[in-house]
Write a protein that binds this DNA or RNA. Structure first.
Lengths: 384, 384
DNA sequence: TTTTGTTCCGAAACCGGTTTCGGCAACGGA
DNA sequence: TCCGTTGCCGAAACCGGTTTCGGAACAAAA
């Protein structure tokens, strides 16, 4: 027996485990301490002397000890991971900023030694199922909910499950007090839209149109409010004919903008709730014989890279997706660690990026109407 | 004591645990079986009778039992998760297809009851650190490596660690046998480039330029090979003056294409290794007084949404990121489950999406040179 | 010197699963 | 009837950490 034991190459304490990683046991044996002491030392318990803690920490670093997150999780109940579920069903899902956003979130998470798991769903209902599954299997301790809707089923689900979550965007437009205890991070699109109107009014525009996004999203309402507030502050009348909604894609933006240009007194400037819709207007303007930036002014929102490469470059309020992800992850982790959700809210602002797509009006709305009329007639003439 | 026990509201077996989820113990008690039996029944062991297995499965479904993935992981060593680390440092990181890719990967993963965790790094070296950390903490059982380089440090790292991984793209261009045991999924960019040249040659072009991407990436070499092979098949000479590399961004594409147009005998058509670079050529062509699709033909690769909205729409070889993600996740999980890495390789093809950016040449190269000369002179005249 | 109180650490239980091992019962063959 | 299989299941060990609890050592107070 003893002879048999002597065949073991080294003492158990120093023998590295199969996979090459060093386990808590081994670290403890190496230090001549019990594994409970080592564990408490690494987790900052106060009943470990400073010298011991220091010894443990240096040894852990030297041996490259890293606890298995799932081994910790089994006792602590936390996997140190946050998750986000994307809905791949949406027409405007091709967001070039997704990577920036993820980078921000991952950066913040890994800075706190957390990770980020992501999943996708094929519909709004599927999103709820995916969220449930991820939490039931404890793949994540909390969730970031992107693209908040006015009435958002995800929030109800997670709240009833008691799962920490944070919204990217606000919710419950028009129904105050329904989301009292929810934490969120948002960018004040309403302020941007207001500033867009004021900027255009400052240029001298008096008829300013607006093309909004799908009203199921909370931000659509806020941005439209910002538009109307801007008009109010500029002392301009609010004309319902100049407001169109529901443009999520380029094509929809084109259609709504086209509709705007066909009112009796067309706008000389249009504020778009999204860059994508604004870019949809570019070929429309060309078809109408209008030069963007001179004949008609355009301002967008989002700051997508394509807007920089449009000709003229689109004046837009740019969103910093990187810090959005960063803040959302940070706030969510704080919430999971016990902070009051209601205290974890942040509202930032988009920054204006000037392009060549807006400027002083070169025509009055009446002249604009006449020009469009002429252009129409010409085209009709062409066809016959 | 007994009196005390009677205070418990229900039998231990039926009492739901604190969090509301049902545990294996409880499921077992509910069934009157031991938890080892239940566990084996759910995991398909052969020493459980068919009737018992059926009972267990229906009960599990009815009670909504879901094992905690980290509790399983502690024994099995697998967390049923795959991961991908994105490098946020890259100039062309704004990939609108990221979500499609993730959707494909997540879809395949969750179909097998796996999840996907993602992380980002700020440099190539940081990528290695992040990979190590993720694996040391066992946040993932394997990795998808996007954007493979010719010499890719990630592969060496993961292989030395014995961690399953799969490449999105091939590697080791020019150094065969260095990646014998690696599994990968790729789209044959070389075939696309070859077909692009043949298509243009078929239109009648005889001087066809090429703007490639950064040669540190493996695909750059393959696509350039495809270009030269296409020339060869078309019976056209290979002119080094018509080949430019290193264009990753729009601006770089613009610069390289501009350089191409300034050779003695400029091309009448250009094949771009990426859509982004091709789109960079649009304003350049305009500046040169060339109409894309008539005066000069352009073909790209990737099929990014923006190429559809360019005027004229860019003819491009479109990549299906969704199936790429799907296949990569599937193959990786197969590998983790024990399949031979070398057997897990797939090569698919991009599909041609015709736009208006290419067609028969309207000029000979000589005429093109003269036109550019004239244009240059005019502009010079403007300036003085 | 004894008591009380700290400080610091180890033993062991614990988390929720998986896997090993052994045993009981039924069954078939000699 | 006896024995060796075979089928099926339970007891217990196990995974790698965390947390509870108790106790030894030492200092301060009585």
């Amino acid at each position: 027996m003893t002879a048999n034991l002597s065949h073991r190459p080294r003492d158990t304490a120093d023998r590295p485990s199969v996979s090459g990683r060093v386990k808590l046991d081994e670290l403890a044996a190496h230090l001549g301490l019990s594994k409970s002491t080592v564990s408490r030392a690494l987790n900052g318990y106060s009943d470990i002397s400073a010298v011991t803690r220091a010894r443990v920490e240096t040894a852990a670093r030297k041996l490259g000890y890293r606890p298995l997150s799932h081994a910790q999780a089994i006792r602590t109940g936390q996997v140190r991971a946050i998750a986000m579920v994307l809905n791949s069903d949406e027409p405007d899902r091709h967001n070039p900023f997704l990577q920036d956003f993820l980078a921000g979130a991952c950066e913040a998470a890994s800075h706190l030694d957390w990770t980020m798991t992501i999943s996708t769903a094929t519909s709004e209902r599927d999103t709820l199922k995916v969220l449930s599954r991820l939490f039931e299997e404890r793949k994540a301790d909390g969730f970031i909910l992107p693209r908040t809707a006015v009435k958002d089923a995800r929030i109800g689900l997670l709240r009833s499950l008691g799962v920490p979550h944070i919204l990217y965007g606000r919710t419950g437009y028009g129904q105050p007090n329904t989301w009292e205890e929810t934490s969120w991070f948002d960018i004040a699109g309403e302020t941007a839209m207001r500033n867009a109107v004021l900027r255009l009014a400052g240029f001298g525009h008096t008829r300013i149109g607006y093309v909004g996004s799908d009203l199921k999203f909370n931000y659509s309402h806020l941005r439209r409010d910002g538009y109307t507030e801007g008009l109010h502050e500029a002392g301009l009348p609010l004309d319902p004919d100049l407001i169109r909604d529901g443009a999520r894609t380029r094509d929809e933006g084109a259609a709504q903008a086209m509709a705007l240009m066909q009112v009796e007194q067309p706008p000389t400037a249009i504020v778009f709730a999204t860059d994508l819709a604004a870019l949809g207007f570019y070929p429309v303007a060309q078809d109408l014989g209008l030069e963007i930036g001179r004949d008609v002014s355009v301002i967008g929102y989002d700051g997508i890279p394509e807007s920089r490469y449009a000709r003229p470059a689109l004046t837009s309020f740019a969103v910093d997706s990187h810090v959005a992800g960063q803040r959302l992850a940070t706030l969510l982790i704080q919430q999971i660690r016990g902070d009051d959700p209601a205290s974890l809210r942040e509202l930032t602002e988009a920054t204006l990026v000037e392009g060549g797509s807006d400027g002083p009006p070169t025509r009055t709305p009446q002249e604009m109407a006449r020009k469009l009329q002429n252009h129409n007639n010409q085209n009709r003439g062409d066809r016959t």
